[in-house]
Simulated assay, not measured.
Amino acid sequence: MSLSFTGSNWRRFLFGVCLTILVGLGYPAWRHFYPVTAANGWDYEVFHSAIPMASALAVDDQNAVFVSQELSNEKGKILRLKPGGSTTEVLTGLSKPDGQVMFRGGLVTGQEGGTLPVLWLHDGKSDALFEADNVEGIATDGHALFAIEDKTPGRLLRYDPETHELSVLREGLDEGEGISICPDGRLFYTEKAKGWVKQWKAEGVDTVVAKGLNAPGFVQCTGDGLWITEDATHMARLLLLDSSGNLQAILNHLRAAQTIIRLDADRYLLAEQGRNRILELKRISR
């Protein structure tokens, strides 16, 4: 059997081919450029832009904002954001700095670029506190430091600054990324490869509090509940798990969301690494 095409058939055939190609190209473009959308009761604006590989955030008691640039091979930096948008470098020569927390009048940062020291920046100098492998999340309960390793298998660690003891709370984790401690002492952490968030238990088995997530990254416990970011290239979300166990998407269509930190009762900062910027999330109604 032979096939033949008339002029009109050829035009229809070529149109179909072109349409298929455009649809194939358009879907990735739509995912890439579609703007972030907020849930009812919330809004956002760009707080700071043009920060390549923006990742971890921290705010000191003077409301100065620190942001890490998660660059490899000792090209990573910690920046201090000034009013008006300018920045200053406060620490350089890092390998994928990720995870920050204010601690004892200074700033603690981990490094995800291998077996490297966790550093404490204070009084114009930096001290190595302890060494671990691919540290991403950092948190504190006011006394000890807690860290999680982004590797498989990885560990959940506790560091006592008084005794310099480094203890392992959990091991065998699958790409641990985020860690947060609530004011009541509850400790939550993420396993990105598993798509879940767990609550650590001193005795017994850790409890899964959220699952089926798209690459969960950082977590942050506040009065609103447990904030969870998704570190996915496209279609990532900012989620809020409230005290009753309800999980709500507060922001949609993010690209590689990283740290979220609280500024006050109605404002948060969120690092969106995939767009090299920091967003300010605002509550507009209760």
Rank of each mutant, 00 (worst) to 15 (best):
P83A: 14
P83Y: 09
P83K: 13
G84I: 11
G84E: 09
G84D: 05
G85W: 06
G85C: 08
T87D: 10
T87M: 14
T88I: 14
T88N: 13
T88Q: 15
T88C: 08
T88M: 13
E89F: 01
V90P: 12
V90D: 11
L91S: 01
L91H: 04
L91Q: 11
T92G: 08
G93N: 10
S95V: 01
K96R: 13
V101M: 02
V101R: 10
M102V: 15
F103M: 02
F103G: 03
R104K: 14
G105D: 07
G105I: 01
G106I: 08
L107V: 04
V108R: 07
V108M: 08
V108G: 12
T109E: 03
G110K: 05
Q111P: 08
Q111R: 06
G113C: 01
G113Y: 06
G113Q: 02
G114M: 10
T115Y: 15
T115W: 12
T115G: 02
L116T: 12
P117Q: 07
L119P: 08
L119N: 02
L119D: 03
L121F: 13
H122P: 04
G124M: 05
G124R: 05
S126K: 15
S126D: 14
S126Q: 14
D127F: 06
A128Q: 13
A128V: 04
L129C: 08
L129N: 01
F130E: 03
E131A: 05
N134M: 10
V135W: 00
I138W: 01
I138E: 02
A139P: 02
A139L: 02
A139F: 02
T140W: 00
D141W: 00
D141N: 15
H143C: 01
H143V: 13
L145Q: 04
A147W: 05
A147S: 15
I148A: 03
I148N: 05
E149L: 01
E149C: 11
D150C: 00
D150I: 09
K151E: 11
G154N: 06
G154P: 09
R155M: 07
L156W: 04
L156F: 11
L156P: 02
L157E: 08
R158P: 05
Y159F: 15
D160A: 10
D160M: 06
D160T: 10
P161E: 13
E162K: 13
E162M: 04
